[in-house]
Amino acid sequence: MHRTPATRLRSAMAAALLGLVAVTSAHAQDRYPTKAIRLVVPFPAGTAPDVMARYWGDRVSKQLQQPVIVENRAGASTIVGTQAAVASPADGYTLLYTASGTVTINPFAYKKLPYQPQDLVPVTRMLSIPLVVSVPTESPHKTLADLIKAAKAKPGQVSYASYGMGTVPHMSMAYFANSAGLALNHIPYRDGGLTDLIGGRVDVAFSPIADVLPYIKAGKVRPLAVSSVRRLDSLAQVPTVAESFPGFEGDSWHGVFALKGTPQSVIDQLGAVSRRIAESGEYRQYLSEFGLVPVGGSPADFSQLIEAESKRWAKVVKDNSISLE
């Protein structure tokens, strides 16, 4: 059949239009986000992880022009919320904001776990939480060396408070005791036991800095050492545990995770947005009020840290026969 120039022109225009529709459709599918993002936080409302997650969500919402809805799913050392997150579609619209124990302690301390670290994809480590070895103000222990000497003189009699078996404060103190060759008496508390520490009813605690810093500033407890590799700006005169035991590091952290199978482009976008938040002066100023340390970094950086910490805590679990149901 003979095709006139007009017919050929119409056919070409139709083909071009179809191609444009296809490209536009593909770009629409690639766009992210196009709806609200659900951020699962496996901690109660009002706790530090919840507060920091809401800060992150608010800034992400402003940058991506979509709501970030925080869903608190607390319980069982973050297991309840993490299980709820990993059961969701891996499309970038369900994320998890959690603390280090979820992926670096729970897999080794719990006999059975309804998720695996491989179910989660690291996006960005938002902040580091140094821990502080503290004693009551009236304690005779002025230095970490004093505490070690007393504990060695009375094996099993020096008591320490924690937030419970398998928490980072418990694991860090167990790690310290192993490093120093000490036998300590562990007393778990739901609230970390700082009230009993201040009152002298427990000898020492290895507490998250945001919890203990106000009491240090008020002169109610005495800091002996911090868990970080380097000294902290907020406690510049307080030595690190690593100064006595090279290689020691016991910080906790908060981080953002996507689900296994989430498109890499979405992970990259979330990572870039998170790094901008972590690097902002506003964020650094905000964290400094609590003694927290902003981090940021790439998904690869985050993955390497998790791998290194998992080896450390797996050894502490094994050396101390820690087993949770």
Rank of each mutant, 00 (worst) to 15 (best):
H2F: 15
P5A: 06
M13K: 10
L18K: 07
G19R: 13
V21W: 13
H27P: 00
T34R: 10
V40D: 03
G46K: 03
T47D: 04
A48I: 11
V51K: 07
D58M: 03
Q63M: 13
Q63G: 01
P67N: 05
A76Y: 07
V80G: 01
T82W: 03
S88N: 01
T104H: 01
I105C: 02
N106Y: 00
A109H: 00
Y110W: 09
Y115I: 02
P117I: 04
I129D: 05
T137A: 14
L147W: 11
K149D: 14
A153P: 06
V158M: 12
S159N: 03
S159L: 04
S159W: 05
Y160I: 06
A161P: 11
A161H: 04
M165N: 12
G166F: 02
M173Q: 12
A174F: 09
A174H: 12
A177I: 09
G181W: 06
G181L: 06
A183D: 14
I187S: 05
I187L: 14
I187V: 15
R190M: 13
R190S: 15
V202E: 04
S207F: 03
V212L: 09
L213T: 11
K220A: 13
V221F: 12
P223T: 11
A225N: 09
A225D: 05
R230S: 15
V241N: 08
A242R: 12
D251P: 09
S252N: 15
S252E: 12
V256L: 15
L259I: 10
K260T: 07
V266G: 01
A272Y: 10
V273R: 05
R276Q: 14
I277G: 06
L287E: 09
V295F: 03
V295C: 03
P299M: 05
S310D: 09
K311Y: 11
K315N: 12
V316Y: 04
D319W: 01
N320S: 10
I322F: 04
